[in-house]
Amino acid sequence: MIDIQNLNVVFGHGKQAFHAVRQVSLAVEAGQSFGLVGESGSGKTTVLRALAGLLDGVASVSGDMTVDGESLQQQRSKSFRQRVQMVFQDPYGSLHPRHTVDTILSEPARVHRLDRIEQRVVAALEEVGLDASFRFRYPHQISGGQRQRVSVARALITDPRIVLLDEPTSALDVSVQAEVLNLLMRLKREHGLTYVLVSHNLAVVAHVCETLSVMQNGAIVETMSVQQLREHNSTMPYTRQLLTASLGYDRGAIDAFEEFGS
């Protein structure tokens, strides 16, 4: 479904140039979920944005990307925009503050000239567990979890095959996180969606994905199955460190942490 070969992303030019993603290759089967974990600033979001074609004018991107049999050009095609959608990390920043939920949800349908926009909007809201009373509210009138549901609904309107999830729950509290994760799992089952999930929460990745890659300093250092992750069965010291860290705060263990990469 998704095939990325030797992706490189460089921000800026000349002396200021910053190589944010180095030689990243990954492949995701249709209907599978793929996790990207790694430390902050390791380039996870940048990989997603490069795939989504959101970096033109900001960074120079090189490498081969194929999605659903379509080899991606600089300019993404309209059908790509319909098939690939994204949910952003920050539910407060990803909805336009002056648009109602209705406007937010009908815009993609209108852009792609879909029919029955009204029904689609109502159906998408229902799909994410929001009743029709949310339709004409503004983002500031709904909670963070509800906003993230609206983001998910917006991504679903065009009936995509692939959804890119950039830390979809890290701004949400645990009770809402459980609701959103359940929602994502249900949609995946019912629509056969393919996910690429970026998260720094190993438990979330283990809950949603089958395979994951660990990123560090812009490069992928290890790719493993979630089963291996659960069994703490990793060869890379960096991954083992991530696993230790996900057990909670332990002042002693932290001193043993190594600096990787730099």
Binding site: V37, G38, E39, S40, S42, Q89, E167, S170, A171, H200, N201, L202, Q241, L242, A245, S246, Y249, D250, R251, A253, I254, D255, F257
Partner: peptide, 17 residues
């Protein structure tokens, strides 16, 4: 630290601590 990855989160907390 809610936007930090686990290792850095703990390292930052260790700094705070």
């Amino acid at each position: 630290t809610s936007a930090l990855d686990v290792t850095v989160q703990l390292q930052v907390l260790a700094v705070l601590d």
